[in-house]
Measured scan of single mutants.
Amino acid sequence: ITIHVNGVTYHFDNPEEAEKFAQKMAKTYQLKMEIHNGEFHME
């Protein structure tokens, strides 16, 4: 699972971890999250 946050790329093997991380980042930084081709993009 690949997550892009403001141009920084994070890779996770565990989908649950990826989702937790994505939600935490979105909440902490008030980010808008989109999913493209199974990759999370946040800005």
Results as ranks from 00 to 15, higher is better:
Ile1Phe: 08
Ile1Lys: 04
Ile1Pro: 02
Thr2Asn: 11
Thr2Met: 06
Thr2Trp: 13
Thr2His: 13
Ile3Thr: 01
Ile3Met: 02
Ile3Gln: 00
His4Pro: 01
His4Met: 05
Val5Gln: 01
Val5Thr: 02
Val5Ala: 05
Val5Leu: 05
Val5Cys: 14
Asn6Leu: 14
Asn6His: 13
Asn6Ile: 13
Asn6Ala: 12
Gly7Val: 15
Gly7Phe: 15
Gly7Met: 12
Gly7Thr: 09
Val8Trp: 13
Val8Ala: 08
Val8Glu: 10
Val8Met: 10
Val8Gly: 05
Thr9Pro: 13
Thr9Ala: 13
Thr9His: 13
Tyr10Arg: 03
Tyr10Ile: 12
His11Trp: 11
His11Phe: 10
His11Leu: 06
His11Tyr: 09
Phe12Glu: 00
Phe12Val: 00
Asp13Tyr: 11
Asp13Leu: 12
Asp13Pro: 10
Asp13Asn: 08
Asn14Lys: 08
Pro15Glu: 06
Pro15Tyr: 12
Pro15Asn: 07
Pro15Arg: 12
Glu16Gly: 08
Glu16Cys: 14
Glu16Trp: 08
Glu17Leu: 10
Glu17Phe: 07
Ala18Lys: 02
Glu19Cys: 15
Glu19Phe: 13
Glu19Arg: 10
Lys20Asp: 09
Lys20Cys: 15
Phe21Ser: 00
Phe21Asn: 00
Phe21Arg: 00
Ala22Pro: 00
Ala22Met: 07
Ala22His: 03
Gln23Lys: 08
Gln23Met: 09
Lys24Thr: 06
Lys24Ser: 05
Lys24Ile: 13
Ala26Ile: 11
Ala26Pro: 01
Ala26His: 06
Lys27Gln: 10
Lys27Glu: 14
Thr28Gly: 03
Thr28Asn: 13
Tyr29Thr: 14
Tyr29Ile: 14
Tyr29Val: 14
Tyr29Asn: 15
Tyr29Leu: 13
Tyr29Phe: 06
Tyr29Glu: 15
Gln30Cys: 15
Gln30Leu: 04
Gln30Ser: 03
Leu31Phe: 07
Leu31Val: 13
Leu31Glu: 15
Leu31Ser: 08
Lys32Phe: 13
Lys32Gln: 13
Lys32Val: 14
Met33Gln: 01
Met33Val: 13
Met33Asn: 01
Glu34Pro: 00
Glu34Leu: 08
Ile35Asp: 03
Ile35Leu: 08
His36Asp: 02
His36Leu: 09
His36Glu: 07
Asn37Ala: 04
Asn37Glu: 04
Asn37Met: 07
Asn37Tyr: 11
Asn37His: 09
Asn37Trp: 11
Asn37Ile: 08
Asn37Gly: 06
Asn37Gln: 05
Gly38Leu: 07
Gly38Lys: 04
Gly38Trp: 05
Gly38Tyr: 03
Gly38Cys: 15
Glu39Gly: 03
Phe40Asp: 03
Phe40Gly: 04
Phe40Leu: 12
Phe40Ala: 04
Phe40Thr: 05
His41Cys: 15
His41Leu: 05
Met42Ala: 06
Met42Leu: 11
Met42Gly: 03
Glu43Val: 15
Glu43Asp: 06
Glu43Phe: 15
Glu43Met: 14
